[in-house]
Nucleic acid binder design. Structure first.
Lengths: 107, 107
DNA sequence: CGTGTAAGGAATTCTGACACG
DNA sequence: CGTGTAAGGAATTCTGACACG
């Protein structure tokens, strides 16, 4: 669970990301500046992205086209992240209750 | 079936491949020269590899260390490819027989 | 045979800034 | 606000060759 070996590995340079997303390097770097995307860096300082980042960039681009501002997109992302975290906790608690009541291990 | 969207997409530059495999760029390029690996190219001429390529490179490196020559590795690869193709055909034929006899669609 | 290396050049990427709006 | 662009520099990659063994 939650391994995603390839999808989340940051190995793609910005030029390839440009080709894959159709965005300009300027746009890609700007979305990073606005804290929407978080590439890693090589020893020399070049940005490295994952396939997940590429998907995220395309989502972002779509919203921008729809007139949504980067700040709003960021708020959405934070909200979604919280929701995901809550869902994770709820699941964990239910699991705990089941274990306590029935001694169930993994469903 | 056989989509492998991320694993087979050629998007990784040689420097990252070097880091991921621990091989030198010289080695990586040499294995290409010996037709063991087939990166794509960017418009500017830079090599692009996939995650599959990286796995293959590590297999190759292991064999080289064991004293196997690139020519032999290549022969093995060709043989394996043929076997895979035969297995695919066999499967297809059996499927065809089942369809003819029982009118089965997909198992 | 497989790999290291120095050489020179070309493609890639980086940052900070100015521009427009 | 979001994006284009020219500027200068640094990191990356490329090829062909010489070397060793």
């Amino acid at each position: 669970m939650a391994q995603e070996s390839y999808k989340d590995k940051k190995v793609i340079t910005i030029g390839i990301v440009r080709e894959l997303t159709g965005l300009s390097e300027r746009q890609i770097r700007y979305y990073e500046e606005r804290k929407l995307i978080f590439p890693e860096r090589t020893a020399g300082g070049s940005r490295k992205y994952s396939f997940s980042d590429i998907e995220l960039l395309m989502d972002i681009a779509e919203k921008i086209e729809d007139g949504v501002q980067t700040y709003e997109i960021r708020q959405e992302m934070i909200k979604d992240k919280k929701k995901a975290e809550e869902a994770r906790l709820r699941k964990k608690m239910i699991q705990g209750q089941l274990n306590a009541q029935f001694g169930v291990r993994k469903i």
